[in-house]
């Protein structure tokens, strides 16, 4: 596990549990350099952790009226936070430190960018998001909040 700087693994999951977009960031706060510091095994684990949290999300999604479900799962020292859109698209963030408010703001930005992607007539729901602009803007949002 990384030392003092935190790293994040972010993935967007479609309605069929298929990943549409994934990214890793390191924190820029407290002198962090923004580069994710996951060990090799940890990177594979991130995907499993995210995947297994989908069950927890399904349990919790009808209990809350909010789209932001906060932290839905915990595995050893890693937390999984989730934002669930009305179209059943899940934004998952795997992280090792708890922080509610910045993550909420980050998800709000991601949601905005996702809506804009949906407006593109050539993009269909559940298609992988390959746009460079989307990628750059997600990384900028991560830099801003995380």
């Amino acid at each position: 596990m990384a030392g003092s700087s935190t790293s994040y693994y972010f993935v967007i999951i479609g309605t069929k549990d298929n990943p549409l977009y994934e990214a890793e960031f390191g924190s820029f706060k407290q002198g962090g350099d923004g580069i994710p510091k996951f060990r090799e095994e940890q990177r594979h684990m991130n995907q499993f952790i995210a995947h297994s949290s989908l069950d927890c999300i399904e349990d919790q999604q009808w209990a809350s009226k909010e789209m932001y479900l906060k932290t839905v799962d915990k595995f050893n020292n890693t937390w999984v936070s989730c934002f669930l859109t009305g179209g059943n698209i899940k934004f998952l963030l795997v992280h090792d430190t708890r922080s509610d408010e910045p993550i909420r703001q980050f998800f709000a930005d991601v949601y905005d960018l996702y809506c804009k992607t949906l407006m593109n007539p050539f993009y269909e729901v559940n298609m992988a998001i390959r746009s460079q602009t989307f990628d750059q803007k997600i990384k900028a949002a991560a830099k801003k909040y995380l």
């Binding site: 804009k116 992607t117 407006m119 593109n120 007539p121 050539f122 993009y123 390959r130 746009s131 602009t133």
Partner: peptide, 8 residues
């Protein structure tokens, strides 16, 4: 053409 990106 708001929000449009041509297919790749």
């Amino acid at each position: 053409a708001d929000f449009v990106e041509l297919p790749d």
